[in-house]
Design a protein around this nucleic acid. Structure first.
Lengths: 209, 209
DNA sequence: AAAAGTTTGTCAAGGATTTAACAATCAAGT
DNA sequence: ACTTGATTGTTAAATCCTTGACAAACTTTT
């Protein structure tokens, strides 16, 4: 049985992954927790502690092999495999997410874009046509959909999420400004942009004092 | 001198604000920490503890007045005033942010949209024309710009941020996939979408076990 | 007006996370 | 091969955050 890893640690992993990727691009072969800590502005102790939740990836007197550690963190995060994503809601944000090439580089492939608005039907966003929501059941049946990004008004979010789960999608990347807890058997990751903006606003006010 | 409030608390304030707004819309006049805790799936103790960082907003035997508390949290977050925002980078994401009406309801007004690409010059996004980056200094001089949203490739993000700060913008809402720490005298709020997606990916993997 | 019931604000305990410290281990130089 | 220096993995201390508990203060009922 695996020990439960805290979300505090998980939140930091993508950042390690990013820095290691950059080091890799720069041709750096090895790095010590101390050097990495200086670049990332965190403590070396935290880095070692975090990594050791998953195993001993380093070596005394040497440090960490960049390529190896990068790959291991990739495995932990599950970004070495491909994940198929559909986007529900083809408004501005939905189109932006659907058109975001970057995600594919880390294993996330957008394979469908859906909306209720008939005016959008067939509209091309990058190489994807907007499909109508009633095509969803068939689409999910015929494609291996792992994640649904919800970029729709909050009034429809809960019902759509329930529908998705009943169709077999068990991971939701939620941009709607509503909480989707109390849906069983689904993994939710929220991106609440307004909340983020309000935090910024708070910190501005504090900063001025 | 104010006691420093932890970011853990600040992160929860927008959520309280949202729930209180909904209660307000529903015509609910008062609520106890206990009732609110059930709706929000947090402990009542946490709610009381969080609020008491900022003052005693409730009353024994009565609870909290919804309208009053909503307004007070609004003040704390600084969303009762208007904040002018410019968006740097008029790609998909930049256009989505610039076109997002919702933000205005919580006091954030998008007043400018900038890019380097001459092909986009003058293109209308909602009621805003895309301006070129070299118009930025004048624009900032003539408008009260408080926040800049950075929706541009990471290669340009750092330099642009430095420029913005030198022009007098001291708050950055950063969507670029890069860290902008070590810039002095600026408040940064990061929205790293890839990171969020990777967290989701990790949690999917865990869920399957 | 008193009694019963409710609910806050706050203190203290408990739990979680972060940092510091250092023995154990390996690498590199002599 | 031995010594020196570097760096990890891990333990323990320190800090931070969350929860439980309850007196004090208010509301409502009788």
């Amino acid at each position: 049985m695996d020990k439960q890893i805290s979300q505090a640690v998980i939140r930091r992993l993508p950042r390690y992954y990013r820095y290691l990727g950059e080091l890799l691009d720069d041709g750096v072969e090895r790095i010590s927790s101390n050097d990495l800590s200086k670049r990332m502005h965190v403590t070396a102790s935290q880095i070692r502690q975090d990594l050791n939740n998953f195993g001993g990836f380093g070596q005394q007197g040497y440090g960490y092999n960049v390529a190896y550690l990068h790959d291991e963190i990739g495995k932990i995060l599950g970004v070495n495999d491909t994940h198929n994503v559909i986007v529900i809601g083809a408004g501005n944000l939905g189109q932006a997410i659907a058109g975001y090439v970057k995600f594919e580089r880390v294993g996330f492939k957008i394979i469908g874009l859906f909306d209720v608005n008939p005016e959008l039907k067939g509209k091309m966003v990058r190489d994807l046509p907007v499909k109508m929501l009633d095509e969803l059941p068939d689409f999910i049946k015929n494609n291996d959909v792992e994640i649904a990004a919800l970029t729709l008004p909050k009034s429809n979010a809960k019902a759509t999420a329930l529908k998705l789960v009943s169709l077999g999608v068990h991971a939701i990347w939620n941009f709607a400004h509503v909480d989707l807890d109390d849906i069983p058997d689904v993994v939710i990751e929220n991106v609440h942009l307004s909340d983020s903006l309000m935090q910024l606003s708070y910190n501005i006010t504090q900063h001025k004092k």
